[in-house]
Design a protein around this nucleic acid. Structure first.
Lengths: 110, 110
DNA sequence: AAACATACCTAAGTTTTTTAGGTATTAATT
DNA sequence: AATTAATACCTAAAAAACTTAGGTATGTTT
């Protein structure tokens, strides 16, 4: 792993969370939003993003609405009901993971 | 991803951190320690652990001492000087990642 | 006119893991 | 006494999840 943009396994969770917060977003918007939130630390590559969105859609967790804005195509994604449930699930897993990591990082108490 | 035991990409960091804290540990001990710290949430599989230890050793970040205890072989690992430096580096990366994730999880402030 | 930003996409390759084995010794259980 | 569980190491094949490196097309800026 030369310069990973994000720890693997978290992209689906990030997408579900963002779409839950924002209501609906399109792919390019997501890349910019994540870059902004992370102050440039987390760069979601398009090669990871689009397959992830397609997978979540195929799994029935996302719903897509295509729109043309300023002559360009946009694919807006939003959570389905199942997506909202899965989001809760994934977020609690991520929180457990983050807590574990914090426990690992904490200076050892002897 | 059926039931991943840990978010990918963090195992090297975990190993460096644990060895920095504990001084020296052997493989099996690490699996038990991580299970304990995470209350059973994080299970480092041996198929991930041993190759990771060997990689870190090959990269000069770990040093190994073989001992026989109660008739069984143990391979104690500890950080080299380079390993200690790399540990600092990896930990700051992990902390930045955790902070970003926390930012993502925080309820949106409008 | 060229470069950059917006907006989508995919395929090949790489990395990192899971799965599923294997060997061997000691401790606990039946 | 024999089987199972725990301790302790290991590896190879497969799967998963990325990065890299392309591709197309439109609008904006230099």
């Amino acid at each position: 792993m030369a310069k990973p943009n994000l720890y693997k396994g978290s992209i689906h969770t990030i997408l579900l969370k963002l779409l839950g917060d924002e209501g609906r977003m399109y792919g390019y918007e997501i890349t910019q939003k994540v870059k902004e939130i992370s102050n440039g630390d987390l760069l979601i590559t398009e090669g990871a993003l689009y397959p992830a969105l397609h997978k979540l859609e195929a799994d029935g967790l996302l719903q897509v609405e295509v729109e043309k804005v300023d002559g360009r195509l946009r694919k807006y994604y939003k959570l389905t009901e199942d997506g909202a449930k899965e989001s809760v699930q994934k977020l609690s897993e991520l929180e457990a993971y983050l807590e574990t990591m914090q426990n690992l990082l904490q200076p050892k108490l002897i």
